[in-house]
Simulated assay, not measured.
Amino acid sequence: MNRFIQKALCAVAACALALSLSACGSTSPATGAASADVPTVTIWGYGGQEVREALQAVADAHNADPAYNTKARVEIQFVVSGTSEQSLPDRLAAAYQAGETDTDFDIIALDDSGISAILAQTSEDFFIPIDTSKIPNYENVVFKDNIVGDTFIPYRGTAVMLAYNSETVENPPATADELYQWIKDNPGRFAYCDPSTGGSGYTFVTTAIYNQLPDEARMSPDTKWETEHTAEWDNAFALMAELHPYLYQTAGKVQYPMKNAGSLDLLATKQIDMTPAFVNMVLSQKNMGTMPESIKLQPIEPAFSGALAGFCIPKIAKDQEAALSVIDYYLSYEAQAIGWNTMYASPVVDTAKLENLDHADWLEETNMDELRYFSIGMIQKDIVVRWAEEIAPLAQ
């Protein structure tokens, strides 16, 4: 459970980051760039392999672009989730506590909910305010209203939708209430992953809580939304208990799949007909041919929780000005198209202005015109803990 709590705090956060694994993709300066005079900006990231590949693909394009490669050279340091090395927050905390400056922690790529985990081990002013006037392409960003604070610049969105088998489900649920009723009407054909192992399961539970709370709650880490709204929390977990016997079963017992991939495996092999899923994971698997073409994505109302992944600059970074130039490139239309083509990352810019897209029809079907954005800080941990205490034992 502790592993997921870390992941949930970082979007699926605070996974291990080893220096020995960090050079997952060093790139060379483009021909013509004076390497001795061009600063190197290192982006530190973590998560799934697809995230690493997308960050690296944009870094390679940056380093080949003469409009940018004379200002900075980008290197990616990354660890894929599931390693057991020292976590990124721990490494940042160690550097901070040792009084280090001018480190290669130039840019931290993370889900913004993971910021609190890092600040808890460093200081409230560990990340510097970012001057967006020095990032011309920030004007391209369409989700400015969702951004919490001035230390975070988003570069991709993440969204969960309802993934379903269109061969067996002709009319998928369009609302949360319709979904809950569908689960009861179709016992054994729905699953969500253990929230302590995957963000799609966490989202399913979290949405059940926040659908009952004022809209402002989803943008606040204030624990009053938990302590002063116990009835709403109780109702949501009562709903989870009510749905429990209607979920996917093996050997006569309800099973909560491990990780996001676990529930998608059940959907791909048609052991279930429906599950909440990250859009980019479904599309990536369809592109690889491991997910049947019959699997479709459906948004529901109110929408499942979404999030933004972005960049922060620590005050221990060695070249903050060069970092701003790199962030500017990641917000360009060219870079946003690369992110989509590499991992089907939801763009944070006007998608009508993107060119040379693979599966542009998929983007049109899953485009986030609006993002039901959640930023609830440490409350995430309490959701996971309560589910583990009240719902998980029902499967034993």
Rank of each mutant, 00 (worst) to 15 (best):
V142Y: 07
A117K: 12
G114S: 07
F127Y: 12
V141H: 00
L110Q: 11
F143H: 11
A109Y: 15
I135L: 06
E124I: 06
N137P: 05
D131G: 08
K144F: 01
S133L: 09
D111P: 06
Q121I: 07
D112M: 13
I118Y: 01
S133C: 04
L110Y: 03
D111C: 11
K144A: 11
I128M: 14
I135F: 02
S116K: 12
S133W: 05
P136G: 05
G114P: 05
E139A: 14
T132I: 14
A117S: 13
D111H: 12
L110V: 07
I107T: 05
K144E: 11
A109P: 03
A117M: 12
S113R: 14
A109M: 09
D112H: 14
V141I: 07
L119Y: 06
L119A: 11
K134A: 13
I115Q: 15
G114K: 08
I130Y: 03
N140G: 10
A117V: 11
T132R: 10
D112Y: 14
G114Q: 09
Y138L: 02
D111V: 09
S113C: 13
T132L: 11
D125T: 13
A109G: 03
I118K: 06
A117P: 05
F126T: 04
I130P: 09
T122W: 02
P136N: 01
N140Q: 10
S113Q: 15
E139D: 15
P129E: 03
Q121H: 10
Q121N: 12
I130S: 04
T132K: 10
I107V: 12
I118T: 09
K144R: 11
V142T: 15
S133R: 07
I128D: 05
K134H: 04
E124Y: 05
K144L: 09
S113V: 13
E139M: 06
N140I: 02
G114N: 09
P129N: 02
D111L: 01
I108M: 10
D125R: 10
L110R: 07
S123N: 11
D131W: 08
D106R: 00
N137F: 06
S116V: 15
T122N: 11
V141N: 04
Y138C: 04
I118Q: 05
D111S: 13
P136R: 01
F126W: 06
V141A: 08
N137G: 05
S123H: 08
I115A: 09
D106L: 02
T132W: 02
F126D: 01
N140F: 07
L119H: 10
I115P: 01
F126E: 03
F126Q: 00
E139T: 10
K134W: 00
T122L: 07
V141G: 00
V142W: 01
E124D: 15
T122C: 10
I107A: 00
N137R: 13
D125F: 08
A120H: 08
I128Q: 08
I115W: 08
D131Q: 07
S116W: 12
F126S: 05
N140H: 12
Y138S: 06
I118D: 07
P136L: 03
I128N: 00
K144Q: 13
T122R: 04
Y138Q: 01
K134E: 12
F126Y: 11
